[in-house]
Structure formats: structure tokens, C-alpha cells
Design a protein around this nucleic acid. Structure first.
Length: 273
DNA sequence: TTTGCCGGGGT
DNA sequence: ACCCCGGCAAA
């Protein structure tokens, strides 16, 4: 595959740095289908036993396989979003409120802090003697305003252009008091301490009824929600991951290409959230 | 309706 | 362990 990519790369002068473009003669097509239709005769031998070289994590010994094929969605936004990479001339710093379903954008950090203090934290506009909690509820945008998909309703997740470093996407509000050793005031009185997931997947369980008597104590964990949205009965269920999973990507046919977890109807391991 | 996947089986 | 599926909830 790498060889094919290289050869065809040499013949396609344009589209710099997008080797995946070699796979699709016309950019409208899904590149993965192309890749699927391609006879796997080019590299090594038969890795067609379900998992390709790149399962995840435990991939320390793949001697003959060249570089991992790089999950095809990488190719998606290599040329799927050609528009986004253009520089905004008005690269003015903006600040966006991360509070759930707010998304207000202001042009100054102090203004944003005041907005958060007043609107969300319910405090008075006293910039002095602020514990800095507001800082966790907004983020800074570096591009122009219209780059972001316009505040509200767009629960757009990991924007394909991974430009913003580890900033949070709203909907998963920053768990504020985790970082503040000085402790936010009373932002943390959740009466029902729900179980927080363990290390990796954080399988939440579906809060299936109070079956047994276990749960000795409300294991007070730090997953505290900002105390405001204590209302409205949003079921505290792990939100669906928004990544396309094996089933969607490969289709019901080609089930043999799914990762094992997907085949067993477990949480997908290949396309994590 | 489809999709993701938890919980609960079976081998 | 591995494999499968009922059924639920989110989309």
C-alpha cells in the first residue's frame, strides 16, 4: 500500500502532503471504499484476518507491515474540509463560553469572566477577589468568529482540524474543581454521586435499577457539575460517542472488518470517542 | 427508523 | 477466555 501510495504520489504533483488522495480518482468518493476494493496483494501477505495491523495499543510487533494504514477517516478530513485551513485575516482573539448550551462569544477575557460570573455563577460583578473559577468555563479561540460553527446547538465534537490543543468541547463541561486546589466555593453539592467511570472507557452502566445493596457509600468522586444545571431531568447517561463506528464505517456487510468489540456488540475499540 | 453497546447469556 | 444477542436508549 505504501508503495502504491508512493508511486502514485510521484505522478500526482499537486495535493501536497495528502497521500491519501492517491487512492481516490475522484475526490467525491469515499476513499475507504476504494481501499477496500483494492486487492490486498501488494503488501506482505494475508493480514486479512479481521484486524489489520493497527488494532490499537498492543501493536508492538508488526515487522513487515509498513506504516499502519491510518484509519480512513484521516483521509476524510485531509481533503474533506478543504475550506477550513485558510487563514483568517482578522485573527483576533475571541473568547467563548463553554457553559452548557451557552456558547457566548466575547472579545475580551475580562468580559467573558464577567459574563460567567454574572450569568452562570450567579455572583456579582466583582472582578476583585475572584477565585478565578470563571477561567474554567471559557476558552480562547484564535481564529475569527465565523470559523466556529456558530455557537449554539452545534454539538460539534472534535473538530477535524485538531488545531485547538487540549481544550474541551462544550457538553463535557470542565470539571472545575479538579484543578483548583483552592477549591471552588460550593460548586460541588451533587446529592447523587454517580459512579464515575474507571480508567479507560468509563463504562457508565445504564444506572440499571438499584439491584443489589452494594455501593457502600456514595463514593464521593470529583466529578462535580457546576451546581447550576441541577435542574431538568437529563438522564445522567454517558453521551453517545460521536465517532463513526465500525458498523457505520464498514457497513453491515463487511462485518468481518469490524473490530472485535463491534462484532460482539461491545463498545468500539477502533474508533474511540 | 438506525446505531451503539450494556447486560447477560452460551460454549 | 471467546463468542453471541436481546433489548434499550440515543440519534
Amino acid at each position: 500500500m505504501a508503495a502504491a501510495a508512493l508511486t502514485s504520489l510521484s505522478t500526482s504533483p499537486l495535493l501536497l502532503g495528502a497521500p491519501a488522495a492517491a487512492f481516490s480518482p475522484e475526490p467525491g468518493l469515499e476513499p475507504w471504499k476504494e481501499a477496500l476494493a483494492r486487492p490486498p496483494g501488494s503488501y506482505s501477505s494475508s493480514s486479512a484476518s479481521g484486524e489489520w495491523g493497527w488494532d490499537l495499543a498492543s501493536d508492538q510487533s508488526s515487522p513487515s507491515t509498513p506504516s499502519p494504514p491510518l484509519p480512513l477517516e484521516a483521509a476524510h478530513f485531509l481533503f474533506g474540509e478543504p475550506t477550513l485551513r485558510k487563514r483568517k485575516s482578522s485573527a483576533q482573539a475571541m473568547f467563548q463560553c463553554l457553559w452548557k448550551s451557552c456558547g457566548k462569544v466575547l472579545s475580551s477575557a475580562s468580559g467573558m469572566q464577567r459574563h460567567i460570573r454574572l450569568v452562570h455563577l450567579g455572583r456579582q460583578a466583582e472582578p476583585e477577589q475572584s477565585d478565578g473559577e470563571e477561567d474554567f468555563y471559557y476558552t480562547e479561540l484564535d481564529a475569527g468568529v465565523d470559523t466556529l460553527t456558530d455557537g449554539l446547538s452545534s454539538l460539534t465534537p472534535a473538530s477535524p482540524t485538531a488545531s485547538l490543543p487540549p481544550t474541551f468541547s462544550r457538553l463535557e463541561l470542565p470539571e472545575s474543581p479538579v484543578l483548583t486546589s483552592m477549591g471552588a466555593p460550593q460548586a460541588c453539592h451533587s446529592d447523587h454521586a454517580y459512579p464515575v467511570g474507571e480508567a479507560t472507557g468509563g463504562s457508565w452502566g445504564q444506572l440499571s435499577g438499584h439491584s443489589g445493596g452494594l455501593e457502600p457509600q456514595p463514593t464521593e468522586v470529583r466529578a462535580c457539575v457546576p451546581a447550576l444545571p441541577a435542574r431538568m431531568g437529563v438522564s445522567l447517561r454517558k453521551p453517545r460517542g460521536d465517532a463513526k463506528k465500525c458498523r457505520k464505517v464498514y457497513g453491515m456487510d463487511h462485518r468481518d472488518l469490524w473490530c472485535t468489540a463491534c462484532r460482539w456488540k461491545k463498545a468500539c475499540q477502533r474508533f474511540l470517542d
